[in-house]
Simulated assay, not measured.
Amino acid sequence: MHLARTTFYRGHFDSQLGRINLLVDSNGALLRLDFALPGALRTRAEYASAIFQEDAVSHISQQLSEYFTGSRTDFDIELAPTGSSFLHEAWALLRAVPYGTTTTYGALAKTMGKPGFARAIGMANAVNPISIIVPCHRVIAASGALTGYSGGLDKKRGLLVLEAEHSGNDLACAPNRQT
């Protein structure tokens, strides 16, 4: 029996916060969205084996452009992240956090019905393969401090400031504070 190999395509989007790498499957479903960090394309096997084709990610680039200009607050993109059922449940909770607002790891754990799982929620955020669209940047520490973000705290702060400016909300965090 011969199994067909799935073809992956990659491209990028240049935002005011830096280059964003995109990886989609042959159907255009988004597998990864990462801020470009030095060496990231070489170290991620998914990107290394993907075919560079901007047209394959243009639908995502368009929506990201709208997000960064403030005209889009929710995304309409098919997502196909790989992860356990717990991770998918945690990522679904992240998608429910409204644009221009923040929440805490503990609050998400309570919403999940697992109040002692704040650290597990933090780990789910850490391995989230689709940042911005699965908005892990909207999760902050109970103290209001910004903690961990795969793209760097400067990117997390930038996304929160961008959303605050476009939503008119005074985010419940201290954007200049780090832990």
Rank of each mutant, 00 (worst) to 15 (best):
Y47R: 09
E78D: 13
I60C: 08
R32L: 14
S61N: 10
R32G: 00
L37Q: 14
S65T: 14
A56S: 14
D55K: 13
G39L: 04
A48V: 02
A29G: 05
Q63C: 10
S71I: 12
H59C: 06
F68E: 10
S71T: 14
H59D: 13
S58K: 13
E54Y: 09
G39M: 05
Q63N: 06
F68H: 07
S49W: 01
E46G: 12
S58W: 05
I77S: 07
F68S: 04
Q63L: 10
I60N: 03
S26L: 02
A50S: 14
S49F: 04
A40W: 01
P38Y: 05
G28V: 01
N27E: 14
S49I: 04
Y47E: 14
T43R: 13
A56M: 11
L79H: 00
A45T: 10
Q63P: 00
A50K: 05
I77P: 01
L64I: 06
S58C: 09
L30I: 02
Y67N: 10
P38W: 02
E78V: 08
A40G: 07
I77K: 03
D76P: 02
A36V: 01
I77M: 06
Q62L: 12
A50M: 07
E54W: 06
L33W: 02
A40P: 01
E78F: 01
E46R: 01
V57Y: 05
S71G: 10
I77E: 07
Y47P: 01
L41K: 09
S49L: 11
R42F: 04
L64Y: 02
N27K: 06
Q53R: 15
F68M: 08
P81F: 06
G28P: 00
P38Q: 09
N27V: 00
L37A: 14
D76F: 04
G70N: 08
I51L: 14
Y67Q: 08
I60V: 15
Q53T: 10
D74C: 13
R32M: 14
A29H: 01
N27Y: 01
E66G: 08
H59E: 11
Y47V: 06
R42C: 08
T73H: 14
D55P: 03
R72S: 13
D76C: 09
S58H: 12
D74F: 09
E78A: 15
R44I: 15
Y67R: 06
Q53D: 12
G28D: 07
P38T: 09
V57C: 15
S71N: 13
V57N: 12
S26W: 02
S65F: 02
Y47C: 11
I60K: 01
G28N: 04
L31P: 00
A29P: 05
G70Y: 03
E78Y: 00
Y67V: 12
I51Q: 12
A36P: 03
E46L: 06
T43A: 14
I60Q: 04
L79A: 08
Q62M: 11
F75W: 03
F75T: 07
Y67T: 10
S58R: 15
A29M: 03
P81V: 07
A56W: 03
R42Q: 14
G70D: 13
F52D: 11
E66F: 04
G70T: 07
L31Q: 11
I77F: 00
P38I: 06
Q53H: 14
L37R: 08
D34V: 00
E66T: 10
Q62D: 15
Y47K: 06
D74M: 12
S58T: 09
A48D: 13
S71K: 09
S71M: 11
F35M: 11
A80S: 08
A45V: 07
A80C: 07
